[in-house]
Structure formats: C-alpha cells, structure tokens
C-alpha cells in the first residue's frame, strides 16, 4: 500500500503531527509500522498528586513503553500539584535510561529516591525546581548524570554547595537560590564550585548564570577560572 511505502522521512513527518498516543498506536497497523513511532521525540509532562493516583500510573505505563525502544529524544517533566514535600517521584522515573531531558518540580529527592537512580547515560538537561535537597544527595544525583550539558537549579532549599567538577560536558549552569524570605538559615550562603580544567580541544566553557535576588545575593562562585560567561541577571 502507498502509505506504508512512503520513505521514512515522510512517515516520520506524518507521525510528528499525531498525538503521542496516536503515534504509538500505529504500531498495531502492520509489521512495517511496528517501530516507526520510535524515531519520534517524546515529551511527557505529568503532575503527581497524592489524591490522584492516575497520573503516577500513567507514568508507569509510558516509561517502560518508551524506554524499551530506540527513542530519538525522550523528555520528562514531573511536578507535584501541592507544596507537599512528601511526594517522591515514582521509581519508574529512575529506570528511564533513555531520558534526555528531566525536569523535576516540587518533589522530594532524598536517600530513598537516590538508591533507585540508575546511570542516565543520555540525560543532557536536568532542571531541578523548588524542592528540598541536601548537598550529599545532590552530589550523588549529579554523579549519575555524567553527560549533562545543561543544569538548572532553582529555589532548592537545603542546598548550600554545588560542585560540578565532574560534569565534563556541562555547557550551561543556571542557578537561582532559594528565596530568602523564609529566613532559612541553612541556605544563606551558597557556593558554586566550578572546575578549572574545562579545557578540551573544543572547549568553549560553560555559561553560568546567577540571577540576583532582592539586590543582595549570597551566592559566590568559587574557582571560577575558565568560564566563558558570567551573568548576573
């Protein structure tokens, strides 16, 4: 039939215009369609809510489906609807090996969570927003994402020091400290450690942004030799 015989480039363009569910559903059409959808980029945005288990179960359905295939790009954004610090990301998130882009918002990442994190060899962007984390956990999380290129850390309570020396691919570090209005003493001063040996043949250095809040920032960049841009937004 004509549609199945179209070149992959065109079929991919057609699948691109379908919703993600519909693109996956085409795998049932015939054998030649079985894996066509895998070459698409997938973006999942999920709100987790204790009172609504459906969203977590949706995640449990999607992630294994996507992880088994050779996805072109897989991006995930999860957040909790409430400011409840007790909500953990479902463990299935940490099994999504092919994930390239992860955004975590208002969730708790603690020892319980990191025990389950596998090595994310494909993750290039990590965006951590509005959550509580301690330095040790942060360091462990970072170590599981060795190829990270973009790291955004925003409003994270409990984090005083960011060390990114081991992130050899880092190109963009964006950091906004926790709003000090709650007088959380433990994050009065934050130090960001950058490495000196960001020098490879194609070295451009990461860009590093620290937006200044309320005219008074307690953020210091330490060992900032070698970065390409320093923005105080």
């Amino acid at each position: 039939d004509r549609i199945s015989e179209l070149p992959q480039r065109i079929l991919q363009q057609i699948l691109y215009h379908l919703s993600q569910e519909e693109a996956v559903r085409t795998s049932v059409l015939s054998k030649s369609w079985r894996y066509d959808w895998c070459a698409q980029e997938f973006h999942l945005r999920i709100s987790l809510d204790d009172s609504e288990p459906a969203s977590a179960s949706l995640l449990e359905k999607w992630i294994p489906t996507l992880t088994n295939k050779c996805m072109k790009k897989f991006c995930l954004s999860i957040r909790s609807e409430h400011d409840l610090e007790s909500i953990h990301p479902p463990s299935v998130v940490f099994e999504a090996e092919l994930l390239q882009d992860l955004q975590v918002e208002e969730l708790t990442l603690d020892r319980k969570a990191i025990d389950r994190i596998i090595h994310f060899k494909h993750l290039k962007t990590l965006h951590l927003l509005d959550f509580r984390i301690v330095e040790e956990i942060f360091r462990k999380i970072i170590s599981r994402f060795p190829l990270i290129e973009t790291l955004h850390v925003e409003d994270c309570r409990g984090l005083r020091k960011i060390e990114v020396n081991e992130l050899h691919c880092l190109k963009d570090l964006y950091f906004i400290e926790y709003d000090l209005v709650e007088r959380d003493e433990e994050c009065r001063s934050i130090e960001v450690y950058l490495m000196q040996r960001w020098r490879s043949r194609n070295w451009v250095g990461p860009s590093f942004s620290v937006p200044e809040r309320r005219g008074e920032s307690n953020t210091h960049a330490v060992m900032c030799d070698g970065f390409w841009r320093f923005d105080v937004v």
Binding site: S30, K31, S32
Partner: peptide
C-alpha cells in the same frame, strides 16, 4: 486501527 487500515489499504500481516 481497522478504519486506518481500510482507508489506506494497509494489509495486516500480524
């Protein structure tokens, strides 16, 4: 799936 197969003449070889 059945509708799409009929519409485009896709043979179900499963």
């Amino acid at each position: 799936v059945g509708w799409v197969r009929r519409k485009f003449g896709i043979e179900n070889d499963y």
